[in-house]
């Protein structure tokens, strides 16, 4: 499963391939360890690493094990895609036991959040982060975990031996046709979280069919190549009273401030009209507007579209012109 490339400054490791095995005719498992046997940076289920393939591609791969504070190895599974841009081919063709690979420390954009109940929907190689999450949850008492796992055929089903218990629906489209997911998605509940990872068509279908859910309970793994540019959460400090406003990745600075009760005027909400200009007092903004000139960008930010490059920015009302 691919994820957006990391931002600059992420810690890099050089890890050695300790073992490989083929889970299916197209999915190969790679076990990565420190050459000196040292423990690796910790991670939680849902995390991914970005691997530099021998041919030079940057590819994000989910870690398929539940993880922990100081794991001995990272395990990734790569599906060969001969029609892709070459990253998976390089992993399959150029990597053998003993190959050293540059790997980022794990990052997690698909983290498990607390819930009483979980529903996982995985399509094909989208099983990789889901497998880590399901194993982590089922190792704990009282886990209420259901899994719907969609693949083409039994032979193309990584981890099929371990996923097939009473809480699991493993469905193969070759022979079984397309599974109707509605019975699983019809009844949202505040104590139920949905995690979905798979090809874009599956994510689109699940997003559409969960339009009546609480959006905070629906988690879908984003794929590489998204046009939106990686938006990350940040904190906005409202200078007049020092309040700290969390701005989630999918919410604008403008909306987050307004939800917190800060009145900010806005009009186009598309970075064009200039109405929502705020004073930028500290931190570095990620300017995405079409209004501010270079010099203006030093001390201003358009709340409707722009975000932060630093984990925190301090903003205030517009200065009188």
């Amino acid at each position: 499963m691919s994820s957006p490339p990391e931002r600059p400054g992420t810690r890099h490791l050089v890890l050695r391939v300790a073992a490989t095995s083929d889970l299916t005719p197209t999915v190969r498992r790679f076990v990565l360890r420190d050459p000196a046997g040292r423990p690796l940076p910790g991670y939680e289920p849902g995390a991914h690493v970005v691997v530099t393939t021998p041919a030079g591609h940057l590819r994000g791969y989910s870690l398929v094990d539940p993880g922990g504070p100081a794991p001995r190895e990272y395990v990734v599974c790569v599906r060969r895609d001969d029609r892709g841009r070459g990253g998976s081919r390089s992993m399959h063709d150029d990597v053998t036991v003993g190959t050293d690979l540059v790997v980022t420390a794990p990052a997690n954009t698909f983290a498990l959040r607390p819930a009483a109940r979980y529903l996982f929907v995985a399509g094909g190689i989208g099983i990789t982060p889901v497998r880590a999450m399901v194993r982590w949850l089922r190792a704990r008492p009282g886990a209420d975990v259901r899994l719907v796992y969609l693949t083409r055929s039994p032979a193309e089903t990584p981890f099929r031996d371990e996923l097939g218990g009473p809480g699991d629906t493993v469905h193969h489209s070759a022979g079984g046709g397309r599974l109707d997911l509605w019975p699983y998605l019809a009844e949202p509940a505040d104590d139920l979280r949905l995690y979905c990872c798979g090809p874009p068509a599956l994510l689109r279908a699940v997003r559409a069919a969960t339009a009546h859910w609480r959006p905070s309970r629906v988690h879908t793994e984003r794929f590489a190549g998204g046009t939106e540019g990686a938006s990350v959460p940040f904190t906005a400090v409202w200078a007049p009273d020092g309040r700290r406003v969390q701005v989630p990745a999918d919410v604008s600075l403008l909306t987050a401030l307004r939800r917190d009760g800060v009145r900010v005027d806005a009009s186009c909400e598309a970075g064009v009209c200039g109405t929502c200009r705020l004073t930028l007092l500290d931190g570095v903004a990620d300017h995405r507007d079409a209004v501010l000139t270079g010099p203006e960008r030093v001390g201003h930010v358009m709340a409707c579209v722009s975000r932060a490059r630093t984990s925190e920015i301090v903003v205030g009302p517009p200065r009188a012109a």
Binding site: A208, C268, A270, G271, V272, A290
Partner: peptide
């Protein structure tokens, strides 16, 4: 009619996918 970011939403999917106001402006 001056347009706002409501037009950025694909009416078929509910996904904010096209910066219509900016396209107009450009």
């Amino acid at each position: 009619t001056r347009r706002c970011a409501a037009t950025e939403v694909d009416p078929a999917t509910g996904v904010r996918d096209l910066p219509v106001v900016r396209l107009l402006d450009q």
